[in-house]
Design a protein around this nucleic acid. Structure first.
Length: 273
DNA sequence: CTCCAGGCTTTAG
DNA sequence: CTAAAGCATGGA
């Protein structure tokens, strides 16, 4: 099954290349995208971006297609921040993804003090090693492993896959979630959710914000990483060095649009747009 | 060789 | 409470 959407506000490259997802690959005329145990094929054909999948409803929500990003961009520009307005113009086709929660937890634990190509490699090897083998019209692939499967391995397993010192975080946090689930995290507001996430091994403020934003749809989260810190200094003339304070600066500025703004800024800065 | 990457935990003050 | 050391890995 397939459906399409105005390509102006849905550009697969913008959406996938902005650091919010680590499982996708070039495929035919576009990309193959993986989330949990599902996959889709997304490509742009003229004025439309097309999504083909066995799970259309899942990916409609995944790509946040119920939301009008023309309005989001208009709102972002209304803040009157030049660097942000330029970022919006260059990345009109960017959207925030609604991703699998547990996949976000492990993926962003791996992301800490790491670079995107290596993060992708580590996650890919974890899926091959522990994920269920799936088949789809686009070929076989491996699902992101359930917490039970992840918890079946100790730190040495993750170290052997190149996870480095994050090995213990993966084994400990997967053991905890395999045991108690994540129902305790559902239906919480941003502040409560972030506080809860900080109690897991390997989850600090930045990783928690990414999980809130990409896994739980908390648009008031504003992750501060090295790129945002650089942008804060170079493009906002900031002088603070404490990331907690930089986070507070941005969230008080952008409120409920913090998450969108952060993605436009992060993407533009990293891509040197 | 050093520096850096979507930082966190632990320890010291 | 804040500040800094230590941490695996691989690419530039």
């Amino acid at each position: 099954m397939k459906f399409d959407y105005d390509a102006t506000y849905f550009n697969p490259t913008d959406v996938l290349d902005c650091g919010q997802i680590f499982r996708y690959e070039p495929f035919q005329n576009g990309y193959r995208v993986f989330s949990a145990d599902k996959d889709c094929y997304v490509y742009t054909d003229g004025a439309k971006t097309v999504v083909e999948s066995q799970h259309p409803d899942y990916f409609y929500n995944f790509f946040d297609l119920g939301r009008d990003y023309g309005e989001i961009i208009a709102k972002a520009k209304s803040f009157g921040v030049p660097v942000l307005s330029r970022a919006c113009d260059k990345a009109k086709g960017l959207r925030l993804l609604n991703q699998n929660r547990e996949e976000m937890i492990y993926s962003f634990i791996i992301s800490q003090n790491n670079n995107i190509p290596r993060i992708k490699g580590i996650i890919s090897r974890i899926c091959e090693g522990l994920g269920q083998k799936m088949s789809s019209p686009f070929g076989d692939f491996y699902a992101f492993p359930a917490s039970a499967a992840l918890s079946s391995k100790g730190p040495e397993y993750y170290k052997a896959l190149g996870a480095g010192y994050r090995d213990i975080f993966l084994s400990e946090t997967s053991a905890r979630i395999a045991q108690e689930g994540i129902s305790r995290l559902e239906n919480l507001g941003y502040d409560d959710l972030k506080r809860e996430l900080l109690t897991y091994k390997g989850i600090g403020p930045k990783v928690a914000d990414c999980i809130c934003l990409f896994g739980f749809g908390k648009r008031d989260a504003f992750p501060v990483d090295t790129w945002i810190e650089k942008l804060y200094r170079e493009d906002f003339g900031g002088t603070l060095t404490d990331r907690k304070k930089i986070n507070a600066y941005f969230t008080s500025l952008f409120g409920g649009f913090s998450g969108y703004v952060q993605q436009y800024l992060f993407y533009a800065k990293r891509a040197n747009l």
